[in-house]
Write a protein that binds this DNA or RNA. Structure first.
Length: 495
RNA sequence: GGUCUCGUGGCCGAGUGGCUAGGCAAGGCUCUGCAAAAGCUUGUACAGCGGUUCGAAUCCGCUCGAGACCUCCA
């Protein structure tokens, strides 16, 4: 048995995963800022961690998975009068900020559900933890790592750096940053441009505001994650995840806050999911180079020739390793769709396998299973896992010709494992579930098609090819494809 | 400009100091009245130039190219 190895961004290398408490895992992942719809790039990150969450559970670990909702404090830019993202959107849509938060949180949940992502164990919000954030700010002030300035409180990076090291996670040299940073425009309350806000004073126009010891204001963006991870997972916990783009400054600041307040960096393993690019460029809300989940499902996008099911998208995403940049294209999606269909076809074949052949087969199911486990243990290498799944596909097909390959026991064992990998770990959904057809109409269609195919069978028996082909062509025109097999014809509905 | 990552066969995408990743596409074959579908099968890639090594695509250096971060973004 191999053990789980995790690539720790902090050390830049693979490390054996040893949870703080045997059998239990505390995992924190930075969630979305709910000021607009999540795009597929966001979805990729959350699906990467969903896969990790699922696999850890599959391995029998009890996971407390905390993923926050950022609903305040995330500014449009770093300028002192920067607008809050949620607040800005609220003005734009003429809604109460909390209506914006509600609207996009609901949307986020719908999207996550559509992609079959499991809900986290706890999903805390920044606005729900103002008290904790104020307390954390006070702690940092008391420890001497922060200062108040004109109603705002800033983290003193220079002071912190004198004792600890700022920039370890992102591999940044503070001296270079100091010289490379832009000049302060004179109206800043910060002592150093490197300092970041823990608490900001609210200007007249700022609509999201809370009372604090420093007057009315709002929390800095980085603060919520430190406050909430500590509250629900403790001062030291196992895994902290997020998108690669959060490494700096967000996670760097989080480490400084945790270190400054509790003398622990917080997470023991830092994991970063890589970006999803579109046309070779990063998907980003601000540049408009995006694809929304809904557009993917419907195909209503200039980037797509058709719609793809959520499972196909998941399959596509997990065919790449979470730490690699993945480029999104219609062609790649089509390839993934074909491959995914082959995988599900093989599963169907295996499910329908009749009890034939010897009890024991020659295919070593347990060795195959171990290969799958090894792949996932190696920093959640889902592409390798999927490659193994296709080895199983090959075996299942070969077994059709020679039932001694799997044997009855082997077939049953393989079926159980295969389903677990596909549905429990990779989070794929059975085809019927993602299709639009309901169970009742499917049943009706089956009944009607049985009649049609029977009529065609009779025509074929009489070698009445004209009639048989006419039926087939007309069905094809109506979107139903007929497949003639050795033991009768089957059909499938085309998209 | 600084920091970092990457450059794999037609496409996507793993991996690695010596042993076929995998998927899609393409060619061949089987099945078949024809077709479709399905299955089987073939292909020997690792940006370029040097270096280290018995041996490198894998390590080192340089060059070219791409991307990320350095200001908000998963």
């Amino acid at each position: 048995m191999s053990s789980i190895q995790i690539y720790d961004s902090l050390e830049g290398q693979l490390r054996p995963f040893e949870p703080l408490q045997a059998g239990r895992v505390g995992m924190y992942v930075c969630g979305p800022t709910v000021y607009s719809h999540v795009h597929l790039g966001n979805v990729r990150t959350f699906l990467s961690f969903d896969l990790i969450f699922r696999y850890l559970q599959h391995q029998g670990l009890k996971v407390r998975y905390v993923r926050n909702i950022t609903d305040a404090g995330h500014l449009v830019d770093d300028a002192d009068e920067g607008e809050d993202k949620v607040g800005k959107r609220a003005k734009l849509e003429q809604l109460e900020p909390m209506e914006i938060v509600q609207k996009y949180t609901v949307n986020f949940h719908e999207v996550m559900q559509a992609f079959n992502a499991l809900p986290p164990s706890i999903e805390p919000t920044a606005t729900g933890h103002i008290i904790e954030q104020i307390a954390l700010t006070q702690q940092l002030l008391a420890n001497g790592w922060a200062y108040e300035s004109n109603g705002s409180v800033y983290f003193d990076v220079e002071a912190y750096h004198a004792k600890h090291t700022y920039g370890v996670l992102s591999g940044r040299d503070i001296d270079a940053m100091r010289s490379g940073s832009r000049e302060l425009d004179g109206q800043s309350d910060k002592r150093s441009p490197l300092d970041f806000a823990l608490w900001k004073k609210a200007s007249e126009a700022h609509i999201m505001r809370w009372a604090s010891p420093w007057g009315e204001g709002f929390p800095g963006w980085h603060l919520e994650c430190s406050a909430m991870s500590t509250k629900y997972l403790g001062e030291s916990f196992d895994i902290h995840g997020g998108g690669m783009d959060l490494k700096f400054p967000h996670h760097e600041c989080e480490i400084a806050q945790n270190q400054g307040a509790h003398a622990h960096g917080g997470a023991r393993y830092w994991m970063h999911a890589n970006m999803l690019t579109l046309n070779g460029k990063r998907m980003s809300k601000s540049t408009g180079n995006t694809l929304l989940p809904g557009e993917l499902l419907t195909g209503n996008s200039p980037h797509l020739s058709k719609g793809y099911s959520a499972s196909v998208a998941r399959f596509f995403i997990h065919q790449a390793h979470y730490r690699s940049v993945l480029d999104f294209s219609d062609e790649a999606l089509q390839a993934a769709e074909k491959g995914y269909q082959r995988l599900t076809n093989a599963l169907n074949v295996l499910e329908k396998r009749t009890a034939s052949g010897p009890v024991a087969g020659t295919f070593d199911v347990e060795a195959w299973q171990q290969g799958c486990v090894d792949a996932m243990n190696n920093d959640f290498n889902s592409p390798i896992l999927i490659a193994h799944l296709f080895d199983a596909v090959k075996a299942i097909q070969a077994d059709q010709q020679d039932p001694a390959l799997l044997g009855q026991d082997g077939a049953a064992a393989l079926l159980g494992h295969l389903k677990a990998w596909m549905f429990d770990v990779l989070g794929l959904q059975a085809e019927a579930a993602s299709g639009a057809t309901g169970a009742s109409s499917q049943k009706a269609l089956d009944a009607a098609m049985a009649i049609v195919l029977d009529a065609r069978r009779k025509a074929r028996e009489q070698k009445d090819w004209a009639t048989s082909d006419a039926i087939r062509d007309q069905l094809a025109a109506g979107g139903i494809q007929v497949k003639d097999g050795a033991d009768g014809s089957t059909y499938s509905v085309q998209e």
